[in-house]
Design a protein around this nucleic acid. Structure first.
Length: 349
DNA sequence: AATGCGGGGTT
DNA sequence: AACCCAGCATT
């Protein structure tokens, strides 16, 4: 049974599998980089970032020796910036602990920052050809349908069940192709909304298809309301230079640079808020001028409307918790900014 | 067990 | 507007 499933998927994969940049090489470092980028991020989005990253940091040694700011700049726009910070930190650890070789064991891999059970399974199987299961969004969906699992797959006992199923399916022979095939099947046939069951090689085994419930699986968690904030920021000019500040290394958008500002308080106008935030955060005074841009931006767990004002520096030396810089507009390209701030920068030109 | 963490594509 | 994506870390 399991062997039949594996055989069918592998046969399908040989004909219909995707040709992706990281499948053309066997360098474990490249596989690792691709797997980190692919966490919660679609293949099409990752491809150009992967190419640029590998050109900038061809080896784990290059990555470990690069300044974090350079790594974040290459990562800029990809999101989930802790991935970049963890990748950089793990590269240093791999030089020290593993003499520059990406580990080939699950335990050694999961002890590195940014590598969990699924990414470790992917690296071990894809880079080293060892038998290990994976469980990403694609595989979870395929398994929920194949075995008609009608419980929310985010529940711990259901996750445990899914890991067991994934482990039971992965064959000793060519686990590398099998895991990639399972993901490809989820991405191209067993899609979230409208799976192409007639074209699926697992149709004869799929319990959800037999019951006609494939479109209602997997069960999804109830969506939660996301708040909407108004934020005011200042593009503070002193001559031909503007002030930027760096966010703390941990937390949201950690390590990225931005125009200073903050959330509006109840009953406050954006112009009042930006003056207050700059006074509080930087201990300087500015005069607030024209509106530079209004940006709407969606994060995963909240939305913001960003009001950006041209400001003129008046008085005081900045005293901030975090680093700040006065830079020319041209120099803004050298720093990593959140996407919402990039929209403001685009509007300045 | 629940939550924080980006950005873009799709529907 | 809601959902999804080659998930992980933290609490």
């Amino acid at each position: 049974m399991e062997q039949d499933i594996a055989k069918r998927i592998l046969r399908w994969y040989r004909k219909e599998g995707r040709d992706l940049p990281w499948r053309r090489i066997s360098d474990p470092y490249a596989i690792w980089v691709s797997e980190i980028m692919l966490q919660q991020t679609q293949v099409a989005t990752v491809i150009p970032y992967y190419e640029r990253f590998m050109a900038a940091f061809p080896t784990v040694t290059d990555l470990a020796h690069a300044p974090l700011g350079t790594v974040l700049k290459v990562w800029e726009g990809l999101g989930y910036y802790a991935r970049a910070r963890n990748l950089h930190r793990a590269a240093k650890m791999i030089l020290e602990r593993h003499q520059g070789t990406i580990p080939g064991e699950i335990m050694a891999l999961t002890s590195l920052p940014g590598i969990g059970r699924s990414t470790a399974g992917a690296i071990v199987s894809i880079a080293y050809g060892k038998k290990a299961p994976i469980l990403d969004g694609n595989v979870r969906r395929v398994l929920c349908r194949l075995f008609a699992i009608r419980k929310n797959p985010s529940l711990t006992p259901v996750q445990k069940k899914l890991w067991g199923l994934s482990e039971g399916l992965v064959p000793g022979k060519d686990p590398r192709s099998f895991n990639q095939a399972l993901m490809d099947l989820g991405a191209s046939i067993c899609t979230p909304n409208d799976p192409d069951c007639p074209a699926c090689c697992l149709k004869p085994f799929c319990l959800a298809y037999q019951k006609g419930i494939q479109k209602s699986l997997p069960i999804k968690s109830p969506g939660k309301k996301i708040p909407h904030y108004h934020v005011a920021v200042g593009v503070i000019w002193k001559g031909k230079k503007v002030l930027i500040t760096q966010r703390p290394l941990e937390g949201l958008l950690g390590g990225l640079w931005e125009f200073p500002g903050g959330k509006l308080k109840e009953g406050e106008t954006p112009a009042i808020a930006v003056a207050r935030e700059i006074r509080e955060e930087l201990k300087i005074t500015v005069s607030v001028g024209d509106l530079a841009d209004i940006v709407r931006h969606a994060y995963s767990h909240f939305r913001i409307t960003l009001h950006a004002f041209h400001c003129r520096y008046r008085d005081g030396a900045p005293r901030t918790l975090n680093p700040y810089r006065w830079v020319s507009p041209g120099e803004l390209e050298r720093f990593a900014f959140p996407a919402a701030n990039r929209k403001i920068i685009a509007a300045l030109k």
